[in-house]
């Protein structure tokens, strides 16, 4: 049961990251493509059985029409088969321009909206997949930088002690006593409000690294400081190993467990940071999509009750955070077991 839970979580995460990687291929439309005549369209139902009760191997949808001037749609008995590997809007992937999408309709003027469409008639499914690229990758990139920075500073402080240690630990104390989101917002305020999406990406990575390094530095410093007094380190020193060699080969390998556990805490925290910033309107801006600004479109009670499918990014966010937490719990137990041996 236990293995099932954390293997299942890992599978879900791998699946999400693959979705993000192959987003342009998996999504039937481009995230910016608007079908204005189909705004606030509910999720399209996929059928295998027609009105006469006959089963079809090829799934199909029913065409639908808008009832004039209201976002209310009526199905019309005109089945449209779904085709796989269809030609659609071109996109660039791995430096090559492609036209093939996993699924879609032959008739370009009719639409399939797996998760419905938004106020401008854009396909929410496509937007969620494209948004995942931004939202999911930012956590990993920022955690990588945080880990590198935290390990470097922590190793310097813990190994050499003295004034370096005092300096870094004062800084760490200061950063840890600042209120997280307020500091994030303050740093965000330093940059212009309107940024191109990929510039914003690096701004966010910078912000999250600035926020995250302190806690990592503190723990790594503690571990290094306790390991450096071990006899085997002394033996290595006597044998003529340089400080860098000792750090790299004899001390830092012990910190990888902690870094792994910590990244399962920090990655979801950073993903959430992006969601929060975009949600508050200081992150990813329209027309580009991220999970945060997709959710921001569903904030008003009117939208939420009339077009509940706009809340579907919430499910993706929740599942991502949940699975990271489950994996983190498992890793914590493993780390505790490993710790008994040293």
């Amino acid at each position: 049961m236990k293995h099932f839970i954390w293997r299942g979580s890992a599978a879900v995460l791998v699946f999400f990251y693959l979705l993000a990687l192959a987003a342009p291929f998996l999504s039937p439309y481009s995230p910016r493509q608007q079908f204005r005549e189909f705004f606030y369209s509910p999720p399209t139902e996929i059928h295998f059985r027609d009105a006469q009760g006959n089963w079809h191997l090829r799934p199909f949808i029913y065409d639908y029409q808008i009832e004039d001037l209201t976002p209310q749609y009526r199905e019309i008995p005109n089945p449209l088969p779904i085709y796989f590997l269809v030609e659609g809007t071109p996109y660039r992937w791995m430096g090559v321009t492609w036209r093939t999408h996993l699924f879609g309709l032959k008739d370009a003027s009719r639409n399939i909206f797996l998760l419905g469409s938004d106020a401008l008639g854009r396909d929410l499914f496509s937007r969620i997949l494209h948004g995942a690229r931004f939202s999911l990758s930012i956590g990993v990139v920022a955690v990588f930088l945080t880990a590198v920075l935290g390990t470097l500073f922590g190793a310097l402080a813990g190994y050499f002690m003295g004034w370096i240690d005092t300096l870094f630990m004062r800084l760490v104390d200061m950063f840890l006593s600042l209120p997280g989101l307020f500091l994030i917002l303050a740093i965000r305020a330093v940059f212009p409000l309107q940024l191109r999406t990929w510039d914003l990406y690096w701004v966010m990575v910078l912000i999250f690294t600035l926020i995250g390094w302190a806690s990592v530095t503190r723990v790594i410093r503690g571990q290094v400081a306790s390991l450096r007094t071990r006899e085997y380190v002394l033996a290595a020193r006597v044998a003529g190993a340089s400080h860098w060699r000792i750090l790299w080969h004899h001390i830092l390998p012990f910190t990888t467990n902690y870094l792994l556990v910590q990244s399962t805490i920090l990655i979801p925290a950073f993903i959430l940071g992006e969601v929060t910033l975009s949600f508050l309107g200081v992150g990813v801006q329209e027309p580009d999509a991220s999970w945060g600004n997709l959710l921001a479109a569903a904030t008003s009670v009117r939208v939420m009750t009339q077009f509940p499918w706009l809340l579907s990014p919430a499910a993706f966010i929740f599942l991502t955070i949940l699975t990271f937490n489950l994996i983190g719990d498992e890793l914590k137990v493993l780390d505790k077991q490993a710790r008994r041996w040293w």
Binding site: L272, V275, L295, M304, L311, I317, I321, L322, L326, D329
Partner: peptide, 28 residues
Amino acid sequence: SLIGLSLPSVLASLIFLFFAFRTGWFPI
């Protein structure tokens, strides 16, 4: 508690907002 930890304030707020609107027990 696992659910609570995985439910960021953004999502929890939206859920409660929805709940408040549907039941009308609390102001939104």
